[in-house]
Design a protein around this nucleic acid. Structure first.
Lengths: 210, 210, 210, 210
DNA sequence: TATGAATGAGTCTTCATTCAT
DNA sequence: CATGAATGAAGACTCATTCAT
């Protein structure tokens, strides 16, 4: 069981990480100075160094923590969905919602300097697992004759790419549609591309891509 | 007509921009110091400031310049292609080849700090025009009954997203396939999603997605 | 009579001083940080400040305390010796043994920053008294015709200087001889220099300087 | 041949070293802050770092430089003297004069923290050579029957110790005697201790020790 | 025009000291 | 009394920018 000490310790760390996320998201790593983080967290500068050995380490912890959460959430939502199309939609929606709820985190992910030893490639590693998960589902569906025999992993990455693009556009310009619509668009696009047509699509029988 | 002065001036600016591209790509904006750029360009540090008012301005000029080139190239290649699928493939290939030929530039685009007043949103603006171009082609094809009545601009952005994802993966891990294959995959995926099926796809009649 | 309070107080102060001696000897004043002292003493950092008003004051107390002990010990051993040569030997041996038994203290004495208001000059003051004591013995011997009429105080300081040098060399390199031999060397050297020769020294009649 | 560049470079380094010597002598290493050195040298703080990579390196360079000079000077003066007693006197006088002319340097030598990787032991190394030089002269004299068969190196170190003590006392209290007298005292003391008496010293025939 | 030495504001980090518990 | 988390002043070092040559 945790001592009260540890609880307080953990709480402070979290406060600082939250402050850091805000600051780094706003100014990036280099321009997000420690004074800012301290001010944002409402503590003195020295206090920061009681909980983290360096600015870099704050940054790393932040990424690690947030990415872990994102990964777990995404995996869980993929599993919760039943059909393949639902899984695709779930994946996209998980990423969209996470980014929406945590714009700061996404902005960091997206502007992360490549030279902090903890690099984008590691970021991609966190993404890799959910993508593989999705790829497995696609393969399974292909074996079941539900979709065509596609390169499952490439298609799964495509889902991730589309989700990312959608998020980015929402981040820059104001949102023009609901998150569910965005996710639906992704799912529909991919689904249309890989499903096995049981019949010719006649004019007027369009899918929701339109 | 340009004086010799101006020619020399322009030449030096270009040398410095090239050096800056290399440095910024390697170390990012914050860690790419002016001394590095000067050394890379083979001039003294002070000389840099005869051609650019500040480090930030070098960065901005660099982005502006490279993005302009990318935009022009992409537009031209879209126009050169005839059918819609070809145009899609051309778009993807243009971006892939550009990124390949100019990894440094792409890396900068991709890690660009969000706080340089010259932001990603502006970057996206450069991309916007080729995407709109592609969207127009899609709409035209839709009107011609070649593809379904889709949200043309969203689909066009999807093409851009997929291309970007492909590039990113090539940048991180070593390339596993040829650029043309990557472009083909993108074109095929999108095409499969939006084309109007003239007949049911029978088993064994798969497309090249696989 | 001391209350139990005072006894405990005194005990804690001593513990802290002991810890401080170890730390300062190992790292010097500037690099011997208060956390180190607290850890070494097995108390919390705040506790230190219940017993001493500042780090500097710990340092001063430490020097004061140790030097007082050194002075008292040296004086006592000089007095205990009977003849002049014995007194010289006793002086040197007292300093050597003290330094050996308490290398930490000596190292502090010897590297003491000159700018702690409590300076080396004060340190020398503690040494002054034993030296004067020895000088008095020399003068007395001179009056008794035992040694030549030398500048007693200068000779006494010379004894101190030689002892110090011997200690320093033992501190740096590993000891090559016993403490008593070192002291004997000092005593013999000085004694040879000031004694009144009762007869010419013939070859082969060398003293133990060799 | 040196370029003008190198000359200017060397000159600036020297200016900074001079400033550093003053500051370090006054405040010690830890409290001698870089701003002080810069102010003393009449340059901006940043300039310091054009000539030295770190504060520690300034300190090391300073010691190295000054000790080298001291060693060379001492060796030369020993060699210049003819008889053994003269050599002893020369050694002591060289150290005394050097310390007098460069009180700052001596104070640094004497308060040097032991934990700068470049330690006192290395300082002793610089002293070692002149001492060995003197020891050789003593041994040679012993073989020539001029002095007794003493432990030459220990005696030579004794000379160094006495010189050091004399310097220290002059540094603390104001000088009471001329440098030559101090050196003469050292030489006379050692000489009395090791010379071979050709005849009994009769009362009234005292040497200059008195 | 080109140079590169000089500048000093700005940043991270440390650590003596305080104080609420 | 004891604790140790919190503080913030201070210091080493960096680097964009300037300017005398």
């Amino acid at each position: 069981m945790k001592t009260k000490q540890q609880v307080v310790m953990e709480f402070r760390r979290q406060e600082i990480l939250d402050a850091a996320r805000t600051v780094f998201a706003r100014k990036g790593f280099a321009d997000g100075i420690v004074d800012d983080i301290a001010a944002e967290a409402g503590v003195a500068k020295g206090t920061i160094y009681l909980y983290f050995p360096s600015k870099k380490e704050i940054y790393k912890s932040l990424l690690q923590h947030d990415m872990e959460a994102l990964k777990a959430g995404t995996l869980q939502r993929i599993d919760a969905a039943s059909g393949l199309k639902d899984k695709i939609r779930a994946f996209a929606l998980a990423r969209l919602e996470n980014a929406e709820a945590n714009r700061e985190f996404f902005r960091i992910m997206d502007t992360q300097p490549a030279n902090l030893s903890f690099t984008r490639s590691e970021y991609r590693d966190w993404l890799k697992e959910p993508v593989r998960h999705l790829a497995a589902a696609i393969e399974s569906a292909a074996r079941g004759g539900e979709v065509r025999a596609v390169e499952a992993e490439k298609v799964a990455w495509a889902v991730a790419d589309l989700a990312r693009g959608a998020i980015l556009r929402r981040l820059v310009g104001p949102a023009e549609s609901r998150l569910t619509e965005e996710a639906e668009f992704v799912a529909e696009l991919i689904w249309s591309a890989i499903r096995i047509e049981t019949a010719a699509v006649k004019p007027g029988q369009e899918t929701r891509l339109a």
